[in-house]
Amino acid sequence: MTAIRPLHLAAEIGGPPRYDAASHIALARLAERGTLDFVTLADSFARPGPDAAAVLAHVAPRTGRIGLVPTVTTTHTEPFHVSSAVATLDWVSRGRAGWHAHVSTTEAEARLFGRRPAAPPAALWREAGEVADVAARLWDSWEDDAEIRDVATGRFIDRDKVHHVDFEGSTFSVRGPAVVPRPPQGRPVTVVDATTGPARETAARHADVVYVRASSPEQAAALREEIRRAATAHGRDPDALRVLVALTVDLGDAETAPEPGLVSGPQLAGRGTYFRGGPVDLAELVTRWYRAGAVDGFHLTPLTPARDLERIVNGTVALLQHRSLFRTFYPGGTLREHLGLPRPANRYALARRSTEAATR
């Protein structure tokens, strides 16, 4: 069957730790030239290197349209700080921010903080879901028109439009409100890698974009349908989810055929199914899986970022554009617009208006 939804493409711009801003900026601009939906920057407490959210905040004013999605580890990190960092990135990028929720599972990482031992994955992902929940509440804690900025009266905010969230989680509590006004997107895009079982539940409840790993279009379609069913069970609209296949790509040898169907492709340190071949081969795979209706798109992790991303943009993406499968320009300015996702209504504004209407 022919897919009717737009194809979505994203790429990782990380790799070995780099401390020069120019390399990250250059890769983000390259991806933007290919009109990719967003770029990601991986991060964890186990690897050296600068903070991903801070790096992409530096990249933001040097790019114009592409979405910026850093990995943010919810374990050992205060949810209030997570919310503030992502909201800040959304402001400095003028509505192009997302965040990839990640957990920390090792004792070595726990010892960096010294506050608690490592917890089982199920508990960590339950906590990550609570962080995603309270972050959304904090982003909503300022209504869109809460700022007055009236110099004559000295009023900066309308206090009736700034709300306490009073959230009690399993490992933390947050009163709120946020210190950053509501982000341009309302709520920045939440990304969850649903490869593992415990993460899948969190993805179904809270994610806007979900990564899966599959070695065939049939497997990808089954995983996509499973996540959509779970989202529906939680009262969500499954059409408000974007399910992307995560794929590590090695385009170093254009003459080497890809692994057939990816079935025998090796795993690279848990980073995803491995594809080896040329840009045209990759375009064929994307076309076949997408036209089968198996996926909403792909998140591509280049094995060698500078080399492979250039071949993705100038080879794979160019061919997909020639086939009219992928856009040639950004129709909007925010990441939510790139993904075809609506700007969420503010829950506290809705409740306040409902209360006001009931008392009239």
Rank of each mutant, 00 (worst) to 15 (best):
A53V: 15
P331R: 14
P188W: 10
R242G: 09
D166P: 02
S104F: 03
H338Q: 15
D133S: 15
L41A: 06
D239F: 04
T359R: 14
S215K: 14
D150I: 01
V59Q: 09
F329T: 12
R224A: 10
H299Y: 13
A203Q: 11
D160A: 14
D193I: 01
E109V: 14
R18M: 10
A57E: 10
V249Q: 03
V134S: 06
D133Q: 14
E255D: 14
V191A: 04
A85Y: 02
R360G: 15
P342W: 08
G235Y: 12
T287R: 14
P117S: 09
R336H: 05
A101W: 02
F156V: 11
G15M: 13
Q267F: 09
R353P: 00
W99L: 13
Q219A: 14
G98M: 07
Y274M: 12
D133H: 15
A123I: 01
R228S: 07
T77R: 14
A283W: 05
I148P: 00
T202W: 01
T355R: 15
G129S: 08
V86R: 01
G297I: 02
L7Y: 05
S170I: 04
E143H: 03
L89E: 08
Y274E: 03
D37W: 02
A207Y: 06
D43V: 05
E78S: 12
R307N: 09
H58Q: 07
D166N: 13
E78T: 06
D51L: 15
A11Q: 01
T273F: 07
P305K: 13
F326T: 02
R187H: 15
H58T: 12
V165W: 00
E109Y: 06
P6T: 10
G278T: 05
F172V: 11
T77Y: 11
V151H: 11
T153R: 15
A101M: 12
A357L: 15
Q219F: 00
T334M: 01
V151N: 02
E130P: 07
W99Q: 09
S215I: 03
